[in-house]
């Protein structure tokens, strides 16, 4: 088992595969992920969503080892709900980012093999996105954040597609095209995608059909 764990230390993030991306728009944010669940190159399911709702204005996408995606999403949801009960208000995305960071750093020497992307609107409906590494080092960004096995492909394509002040529908188009074209170049992710657009009034969730290979 120790050897298994060493293998995980090197490639835990690549075992199940996955892609998550978040983008800032004008008074809105978008977060999207693929839906593949596999064991290395064997695909087992195509309805594994990696984005979790923490509250109406804060979502988190977790790419990485599926078991840790499940454990961490449950742990974070619990912490958010307890925060709401204790403080009688919803957690803001920025505070949530620090909560995620400290939760991950709690496991500094036996980490969760997950890279989170956080997207949300703060109390003044100002867009906020960030990502962290697997031990909780936060990367604040003004444009977009990416994570998962498709991160490299996503960086390139988001760099050329993204521009400032996109409205919700334009942002949907940009994030969808970026994700779809990026994961077509990655055999460990794809098989459908889900996009959430968070605006002050409502959340738009759309499921995308994609290449099935």
């Amino acid at each position: 088992m120790i050897t298994f764990f060493l293998v995980l230390l090197q490639s835990g993030n690549e075992y199940n595969g996955g892609a998550v991306v978040a983008m800032v728009g004008k008074d809105c944010v978008a977060i999207a992920s693929d839906k593949r669940f596999g064991l290395e190159l064997l695909t087992l399911a195509t309805d594994f969503e990696k984005i979790f709702k923490m509250n109406d204005k804060c979502y988190i996408g977790l790419a990485g080892l599926a078991t840790d995606v499940q454990t961490l999403s449950e742990e974070l949801k619990l912490k958010c709900d307890l925060y709401k009960l204790r403080e009688e208000r919803e957690i803001t995305p920025k505070k949530f980012a620090h909560l995620v960071s400290s939760t991950l750093y709690d496991h500094r020497w036996g980490p969760y093999f997950c890279e989170p992307c956080i997207a949300g609107l703060d109390e003044n409906n100002k867009p906020f996105i960030c990502s962290t590494d697997l031990i909780g080092c936060i990367n604040f960004a003004k444009d977009f954040v990416v994570c998962g096995t498709t991160a490299r492909e996503l960086y390139g394509i988001c760099e050329s597609f993204w521009e400032p002040d996109l409205g919700p529908e334009e942002l949907f188009e940009v994030i969808s095209q970026s994700l779809l074209n990026a994961f077509d170049r990655d055999s460990k992710s794809g098989w459908g995608a889900v996009v959430h657009i968070i605006t002050p009034e409502k959340i738009i969730t759309r499921h995308l059909k994609t290449r099935q290979d």
């Binding site: 075992y15 199940n16 669940f37 064991l39 087992l44 399911a45 594994f48 599926a66 078991t67 499940q70």
Partner: peptide, 12 residues
């Protein structure tokens, strides 16, 4: 439900 030794649970 399908589950491996890493405790990844999936309904299939």
């Amino acid at each position: 439900y399908w589950m491996d030794y890493l405790a990844s649970l999936k309904k299939l």
